[in-house]
Design a protein around this nucleic acid. Structure first.
Length: 137
DNA sequence: GCCAACGTTGGC
DNA sequence: GCCAACGTTGGC
């Protein structure tokens, strides 16, 4: 079991939209970055991830689950790009903001804190537990 | 809306 | 294969 973090601008595709897709989930398309794609290729069915709102809110708002492993991105003909499908699992009772993460020395090495531009990130098990606790789970 | 950081592209 | 130029992202 691995843990991940998905970033999206709420204007384009927010948590509410993700929840509205229900258990069918939605393909996480549009990623055009090798690091992010490699992360998605490494994902296994049932892996969990945080859903992060960039720009507006700048906070982790919910938990998602990988419900389809990497497959070609249907929004492009370029065979280089693949994506996974994710479905909403549950919201965080208390969203965890970027500031909260920066303020906690245990999260100093979190990708979100160090390389905020990467849109699909790896989260360690320790970071996962810390953020879950901060989020009220 | 600005700008720094980063990734990608393309000329050499 | 290097590196300058460019485009994009995202925090502020």
């Amino acid at each position: 079991m691995a843990y991940w973090l998905f970033k999206s601008e709420p204007d384009t595709w927010g948590w509410d939209a993700q929840v509205a897709r229900g258990d069918k989930g939605e393909q996480w398309d549009g990623v055009r970055n090798y690091q992010a794609r490699n992360n998605m290729r490494a994902m296994k069915l049932g892996d969990l991830g945080f859903f992060y709102h960039s720009n507006q809110g700048k906070e982790i708002v919910g938990i998602v689950e990988v419900c389809a492993e990497a497959h070609p991105d249907s929004t492009t003909d370029d065979p280089r790009w693949e994506c996974v499908d994710i479905r909403a699992v549950k919201p965080l009772p208390h969203p965890v903001s970027l500031d909260d993460c920066k303020a906690d020395p245990r999260l100093r090495d979190m990708v979100l804190v160090n390389n905020s531009r990467l849109s699909v990130q790896r989260v360690t098990e320790e970071e996962w537990k810390i953020v879950c606790k901060m989020g009220g789970l």
